[in-house]
Simulated assay, not measured.
Amino acid sequence: MESLISTGLAQLDLPAYPADAAAKLAKYGNLLMEQNQVMNLTAITQPFDVATLHMLDCAPLLNCGRLEHAKLIDVGTGAGFPGMVLKALCPTLSLTLLDGLQKRLSWLETVAEELALEGVTTLHARAEEAGQDGSLREQFDFATARAVADLGLLCEMCLPFVKVGGRFLAMKGPECQEELDRAARAIPTLGGVLKGCYDYRIPHTDITHRVVVVEKVAPCPAKYPRRWAKMQKTPL
């Protein structure tokens, strides 16, 4: 797995990253596959797929903003993607992993220790509630999400965390134009502007994915994010 990751990273034209990054990501992948036998963390279970569809899929976010010494919150982190991959590649990144399941977060704390990653904080919370917390609201340079929720809903959950001048990086497939169209009203309502889309091919595969880049240009109105049921019932 380490060789796959190493050669894949070299193909992505990333900013400088530590020499041991591929080894750490391979160890992360092995820990994931081991833990997945007792905890439902991922449907991706083969070493090649873990290396490509997890590790190398997340790495290109480094090309979407300057992460060095930045503060990033990974909303709905699940098994740690993309946050833990970005931390391994950019050690000066201050990382907060937010998830609704404490068991996953406890495992991620163990992974961070195993990989000697410092500056990783876990947060057990619902995103829509945490986004109203004054100690978290508009405190981050970046927010990320690698989730199946519609882009408009993701923006309402994630943009409240981002300070003015920061960015929300949403991981999506290339066929997300309809989502972009639906989010056209939500993004400016939440203080954002669509900066663009960054498409990339995952190394060793024929799969193309996209990062939707939303820049925060104004404070998010205090009433957002709303309760989850309200978001779903009446999207922005």
Rank of each mutant, 00 (worst) to 15 (best):
A149C: 14
V214M: 12
L4F: 09
A229F: 10
D199N: 12
Q102K: 13
T208M: 14
F48M: 08
E179S: 08
V193Y: 01
P219V: 09
N40M: 13
K233A: 15
T189Y: 03
L236F: 12
E34R: 05
D206V: 12
L25K: 02
A10H: 09
K24L: 05
G152S: 15
F142N: 00
L153E: 14
K195T: 12
L136E: 03
A112M: 11
D20A: 10
A70V: 05
D57F: 00
F140N: 01
L86E: 04
A183R: 02
E34M: 05
G166L: 07
Y198M: 12
L236T: 03
D199W: 02
R66W: 01
H54W: 00
Y17Q: 01
P188N: 04
L41F: 03
V217P: 09
A70R: 01
G76K: 04
W107K: 06
N30S: 15
K230F: 06
L101H: 09
F81L: 12
V193I: 10
R126Y: 00
N63L: 09
M157C: 12
A88N: 03
V148D: 13
T96N: 12
F140E: 00
G152I: 07
A143L: 12
G119S: 07
A229N: 14
L136S: 03
V213L: 15
L169V: 10
K87E: 07
I202V: 13
A116M: 11
G100L: 07
S106L: 15
Q177Y: 08
G8E: 11
A21Q: 05
E128C: 01
L159F: 07
M84T: 08
G65F: 08
F81W: 01
L236W: 09
F81V: 04
A143M: 15
K223N: 15
K87R: 01
W228D: 12
P188M: 09
C155F: 05
K87L: 11
Q102H: 10
L62K: 05
L108W: 03
L25Y: 00
I207D: 04
G80W: 01
N40W: 10
R104Q: 06
